[in-house]
């Protein structure tokens, strides 16, 4: 921990359609003391409904951070990014793009759409855990998230 006062636990929205990756992220993040909630939606349309609290997501809480894949059914990650980075109230939520894509085109496009960072999803299990841990160490400890209060 970089700061003396512990952070409020973080709420995460995971936008991912690969069940294996969902399970893995759940396993790693469930152990974390820094994470209080991990909700999962499986495509861009569901993600927007969740974030806008529509339909069955009327009582969804506002996530502190969004982890999302680029290749998603119905509405893909690029469309989802475009929608939420142009919407007041949603655009300030940090978005971490975690994708198997290695294409430079995708990296450039992702930053152009103002994702907060682009991470290539490692296929190796151990490396995947390293990445999730690194996200935790950086985003949940030293970054001031929009939703954290006071000295956080």
């Amino acid at each position: 921990m970089i700061e003396a006062n512990p952070k409020k636990a973080v709420k995460i929205l995971l936008v991912e359609d690969n069940e294996g990756d969902i399970r893995l992220a759940q396993e790693v993040l469930a152990e974390s003391r820094l994470v209080s909630q991990l909700d999962v939606v499986r495509d861009g349309v569901e993600a927007l409904a969740y974030l806008r609290r529509q339909g069955r997501y009327a009582k969804a809480s506002r996530p502190d951070i969004i982890l999302m894949d680029l290749n998603l059914p119905r509405m893909d990650g690029r469309e989802l990014l475009t929608a939420l980075k142009n919407e007041d109230g949603l655009k300030r939520i940090p978005v971490i793009v975690l994708t198997t894509s290695q294409a430079e085109q995708d990296v450039l496009r992702t930053y152009e759409l103002h994702a907060n960072c682009f991470i290539s999803k490692p296929v190796d299990l151990e490396q995947f855990m390293v990445v999730i841990k690194a996200i935790e160490d950086f985003w949940f400890t030293i970054v001031s998230l929009p939703t954290s209060r006071g000295a956080g």
């Binding site: 970089i2 700061e3 430079e104 990296v107 450039l108 930053y111 960072c117 682009f118 991470i119 290539s120 990445v131 690194a134 996200i135 160490d137 950086f138 400890t141 030293i142």
Partner: peptide, 22 residues
């Protein structure tokens, strides 16, 4: 000391984990 550690965490995350635009 904490400032130095914060910078080093920026270094680790943004140069070892993240893919920056070229």
């Amino acid at each position: 000391g904490q400032f130095i550690r914060a910078v080093q965490m920026i270094e680790t995350f943004w140069f070892k984990i993240v893919r920056l635009p070229p």
